Every structure is written in structure tokens, then in C-alpha cells.
Amino acid sequence: MERSQPLSGNIAQQTAFIALGSNLGVDDQDSVQTVVSAMAVLGNVLGETLVKSPIYRTPCFPAGRGPDFANAVVACQTNLSAADMLAGLHRIEADFGRTRAARWDARSLDLDLLALGAQVQPNRTEFEHWHDLSLEAQQARVPADLILPHPRLQDRAFVLVPFAQVAPEWHHPVLGVTVAQMLAALPVDEIAAVERISLENEGSS
């Protein structure tokens, strides 16, 4: 498969947090191998990769939409704007065979920009609107603009478990709590369903 080229930067460096997920894999790679490959590409395209979480196996969400996911979170130091980062993430997804046939459908690779420094985009009012939507509304509606921080990250164990391995003290600029605090607020059974995957070469790089 083709691989995206680095993007040129245009702002002061900030730390970006990106969630990765796959439950289909691509080419001859399974979902775990796809996430490992995508982690390497992220650093090449978006900026220096600072920290990578372990990879976790999590139940598909919503339930019944497909196989279990492989999930992870990475932190990258970048001087890209949020819009340029989003464009870069979409390019990488396309390189890994991502299609968007249906919202929250099974996918070869899903890359979500969780946060970029302490930015709130496009503004606090829009963030709070999308943060407060019901699950049913989330499934039916897609925001026209990028929302930062990701408005659902505090609800998702499959995001917060790996995020807590990367930056447990990252402070949500609107909610006023850390990643560790958001994770601790989730139901125990949701956290337990996110199971770490042991890789043969883990810790070798």
C-alpha cells in the first residue's frame, strides 16, 4: 500500500493525541498489525512520535457492528494546525483502505484526533453542544467542523485506557479533569473489557 508523505508545519509545536482503531485489517495484515503499522506512519507524516500506548483488544462499538477492535493512543509533537492534522489523518486512513460507508461501521483503520494541546475548537459553545448529545443523536449526526477535544473521549474506555498509558495527567481544557480521573469515573466492567494485547516484539524499540 502507498504511504503518505510528511506534511509541512505552520504553527508552534504542540502535543497531539491520536486514537487508533482497526477491526478489519488491510491487505495481509490483521487488525493488530494494522495498528502497529499505522503507529509508525503517524510519526513520519504528522510529527515526532513521543509516546505509544500498548495495543488493546476491545469489543466493537456499537455492539454487533463487527469483530473486536485493536485500539491504541499515540502522542506526537507537531507544528501542524488541527485542520492540517485532520487532513493528514484522513490521508493515512485512505492509504490503509478506509472507506466511510456507514457511521461507526467496521473499518480497516480509524484515526481520531483526540486533542491538540489545550485547544478548544471551533469554540466552547460548539464543543458543549456535541458533548451533550445523546447516544442516538451521535449515531445520526456528524459535526460539520472538527470538534476538539474529541467530544466523546470521556465516555469511552477503549480510548481512555490507552490514553492513560500515554498521558494520564493531561488536563481536559473544558471538563477540568485529567485522563486518569475520566478513566476512574467509568464503570468497572467497561474498563475490564479493554484487554491489553501482548506483542512478541513489545519493548524492543
Rank of each mutant, 00 (worst) to 15 (best):
G47F: 04
R152W: 00
F163A: 03
L89M: 12
D145K: 13
A106N: 07
M182Q: 14
A83D: 14
P151W: 03
T99H: 11
A94Q: 13
S108D: 03
Q14E: 14
P151A: 04
V36D: 06
L133Y: 09
E202C: 02
S4Q: 12
P62N: 11
A118E: 14
V51Q: 13
S204K: 10
V174R: 00
I92P: 06
P162K: 04
L86R: 07
L46F: 08
S205A: 15
L160P: 06
F163T: 04
L24H: 01
P6S: 12
P187R: 00
A164E: 07
H131Y: 15
V45H: 01
Q13V: 14
G203F: 09
I55L: 09
N79E: 13
V166D: 06
S198G: 03
L160Y: 04
A87Y: 09
D68N: 15
S134Q: 07
V120P: 11
F127S: 02
L24K: 05
V179A: 11
R57Y: 00
Y56V: 05
A70I: 11
P173E: 02
D110R: 04
N201C: 01
W170Y: 06
A137I: 00
N71V: 09
I92V: 12
G176A: 05
S134G: 13
S37M: 10
N79V: 01
K52Y: 11
Q5T: 11
G47T: 09
L7V: 08
V51L: 11
W170P: 01
G97S: 12
S134E: 12
N201T: 14
V159N: 04
S37F: 02
W104C: 06
T125P: 00
Q181R: 12
R57P: 00
N71I: 03
L50E: 13
Q33N: 11
H90K: 15
S108Q: 14
A164S: 14
R98A: 07
F17L: 14
A184K: 06
A192Y: 01
A87K: 14
G25E: 10
M85V: 08
G25N: 10
A87S: 15
P67V: 04
A185M: 02
V142G: 01
D105I: 00
I11D: 05
L7Q: 02
V36T: 13
E2W: 09
F127D: 03
Q119F: 09
V174M: 06
V161M: 09
Q181I: 01
W130R: 05
A16Q: 01
S81Y: 08
S53W: 08
I18G: 03
A102K: 09
A180R: 12
Q33M: 10
G25W: 07
G43D: 11
R152V: 00
D95K: 02
S53H: 10
R103V: 07
R3Q: 11
F61H: 13
R91E: 15
H129S: 03
D110S: 06
K52D: 12
Q77S: 15
R57E: 15
V188A: 15
A115R: 07
A82V: 03
F69Q: 04
P67C: 06
T125V: 10
V41C: 11
D112N: 07
V179N: 01
G88V: 02
M39F: 03
D28Q: 12
G43Q: 11
L186I: 07
L42S: 09
L46K: 02
V159Y: 04
